[in-house]
Design a protein around this nucleic acid. Structure first.
Lengths: 178, 178
DNA sequence: ATGGACATGTAAGCCGTTACATGATTTG
DNA sequence: CAAATCATGTAACGGCTTACATGTCCAT
């Protein structure tokens, strides 16, 4: 299960409470592996029993106590083991493609509207990625080892969104000219 | 649930047994919405109770009987209703991106091997899509209404795979030059 | 006679979403 | 005074995977 490994990566970068992890999954990491706080708490509990993370209860003033989770040596070993394993090819689930295929049986104008909406969404995400790139990696020619992975993932996100926008444009052009 | 709608699209194109549907989900449709035969049988059962599909038992000689499922008027209405609904933006789940992010904590050589493996896989899928395009849509300038959706989906697949290959090349170049 | 294609299912279990639940503190 | 933020969970349910189960016909 990859949520476990996404959590290990995040905790390897910096220890965190379940709540803090959930916020990270709302932002950076979550753009490539989403998870809700409920799921995170559940998995975190299992990971503790498995010895992959350790827990320290931290009292705070003016705020609820929190459980700070840190990656253990066993967690680091598991992360390393996982990276050495081939990634199985992922099977896609693209509702948008199914809808396109439904063109002859559906509401054409509504589908065109949907394509425009998808395009706008991809443009938004692209802008967000490009801002993140400019902010966090202002000089990509000199990246530290620690930054390399994050930068490459962002590059993939940017490419993906650019590709999706180009596809939407091709769809719109094809549908409008007939 | 989109499996339901993927099945409706497939049955709108041509009536089929559960087994035949499963084979389609192994091939064409399945490249964009995967499903196993177990899942298909289960959903098909529910769709029958809901009146979205009708079932006719067909006896065959030399082969087991089959249940041929056809889309009903209610099924067509549901398909049309669904196409008129906005597609919710999909949250990605990309284990490969998580693994890249794990670069500083993992086995670098193994990850590079994995990138090469991913690249090879995407190249295979791309070749398959391009062959499908050449075989089923030899003249894309004159597409029938019925073919439009399938063609556009294939175009998206081709773009996606090309983008993935280009990303892999960028990763390999970045990792090899340091 | 072994294995693959055809054909349809059940059962167990995990993963994940949605809804529900609580309670303090800060900000508008 | 209401809403957002911080913080952690439980419960119900649905989707999906994996394993198990059965049986015929055809080709090698």
């Amino acid at each position: 299960m990859a949520l476990e490994h996404a959590i290990l990566v995040s905790l390897a970068e910096r220890s965190a409470s379940g709540y803090e992890l959930a916020r990270r999954f709302d932002a950076s990491i979550g753009h490539f592996w989403s998870a809700t706080h409920q799921q995170i708490y559940k998995v975190l509990g299992r990971m503790e029993s498995d010895g992959l993370v350790s827990v320290e209860l931290v009292a705070q003033d003016g705020r609820p106590d929190k459980k700070v989770h840190a990656i253990t040596d066993a967690g680091r070993a598991e992360l390393r083991r996982w990276t050495a394993e081939p990634t199985p090819p992922e099977r896609l689930r693209t509702a948008f493609a199914v809808k396109l295929r439904a063109l002859p049986f559906g509401d054409r104008d509504a589908i065109v509207d949907d394509v425009r909406r998808q395009r706008a969404h991809h443009a938004e995400v692209l802008a967000y990625y490009e801002q993140s790139a400019a902010r966090f990696y202002p000089d990509p020619t000199t990246l530290s080892e620690a930054d390399l992975g994050g930068w490459l993932v962002l590059r993939g996100g940017i490419r993906t969104e650019q590709g999706a926008i180009a596809w939407c444009d091709e769809i719109l052009q094809t549908l409008e000219e007939r």
